[in-house]
Design a protein around this nucleic acid. Sequence first.
DNA 1: ATATTTTTTTAGATAAATCTAAAAAAATAA
DNA 2: TTATTTTTTTAGATTTATCTAAAAAAATAT
Lengths: 218, 218
Amino acid sequence: MFSDSEENYLKAIFHLERFSKEGVSTNAIAEEMQTKASSVTDMLKKLSDKKLVNYVKYQGVTLTNNGKKTAAGIIRKHRLWEVFLVEKLDFSWDEVHEIAEQLEHIASDKLVEKLDKHLKHPKFDPHGDPIPSKDGTFPERDKVLLSELQVGDSGVCVGVKDTSSSFLKFLDKNGIALGKEIKVLEREDFDDSLQIKLGDQTLTISHLIASNLYLKTN
Amino acid sequence: MFSDSEENYLKAIFHLERFSKEGVSTNAIAEEMQTKASSVTDMLKKLSDKKLVNYVKYQGVTLTNNGKKTAAGIIRKHRLWEVFLVEKLDFSWDEVHEIAEQLEHIASDKLVEKLDKHLKHPKFDPHGDPIPSKDGTFPERDKVLLSELQVGDSGVCVGVKDTSSSFLKFLDKNGIALGKEIKVLEREDFDDSLQIKLGDQTLTISHLIASNLYLKTN
DNA sequence: ATATTTTTTTAGATAAATCTAAAAAAATAA
DNA sequence: TTATTTTTTTAGATTTATCTAAAAAAATAT
Ligand SMILES: [Mn+2]
Ligand SMILES: [Mn+2]
Ligand SMILES: [Mn+2]
Ligand SMILES: [Mn+2]
């Protein structure tokens, strides 16, 4: 239906739209896609011709309903494959993104639905990100950044904001994983670092770490 | 490493090499790939530059050792994915080829090895075709076409020569599947059709059918 | 051995996706 | 409000994979 490149642009625009109520700018897309602004302009024209984006010269783009649905479909595939890689093939969560980046472009509706069934219809991927349903609806879950909690608050780790390999490996090394219970024991005013209880151990983590971990509070 | 197109050419040449001891001709490749001879010539030059084929103008091509190993790797992926689709996702054997045709181009050695392990290192795909090992070796199995058997001979169905959807669906409809025991009861001289015993039933099949079914004789 | 047919290659064009450099428009600063 | 800077678009190239039409080479037939 659409080329890998077109699909990657749709996904990028979809993600960027969440942060700007205006149209998404050419430069923002270029940055996200690691490409040049002129290449973006070319692609926007093409996506516009295909009625996937609303594009007016110099005014950025928004996805059309069709564009949104298409983007959600690609994100659905990406995240389902990530679940597969972690749950069935025993990959660790820092290894799957690159591979899912390729698998998301495999075209077969039947494959997606069979994969979804095989995985027992997961609602979230290995990084805690929501998996849209077939019709494009994203499951919601209220979650707070660990850095927002007060001393004494506690919750269960349900997601990461930064999904970089280095961050995920850091979490592994320190025993932090989705499903783990975390309680804030102390906050250091000087640098906003936190002392937390994780299982039966106590851990000190920097503000940067805490501001990339999502918890579901108790 | 290589483009999807390059990989598809390598696979085509690999398959064609089995039938001609000479180099594979440009036209044969064009036929196999459903493309034009001029496109083939262009690609052969490129593959030759990359040392994947031995190409001399007007004399056809053969794969280099490197080309053979690369082709075997793609066939390995194709067939492992077919096993996955049938065994794990419950696809039927007539639906998997098209999807595997895409999946075979996913680039990740680790993925292939994890998939292989997950599937318990299968030696043959859902159509009975051998799955090369990581180093490019194809498992052998002696098999005979059902059409070659004499009256009274019997064997187990281990593969199909024609893998077209229509043939596979015909086999499904008649209860013929890999692993089934078949015995030749009678041969009709006029059209070489066979009367066979399949489980507890008796079936009449045309020569065309019999000449596309591989058995391992008892 | 020459003529004819078939196969293969070359020449030149097209479409997709990218790039650099220059021009145009919009945003910001003076 | 005018000048400067930033953003975006356009113009023109490049690469990859394909095609058609024509030329060249090889194979086949007379
Ligand atoms: Mn992608
Ligand atoms: Mn993810
Ligand atoms: Mn393929
Ligand atoms: Mn197969």
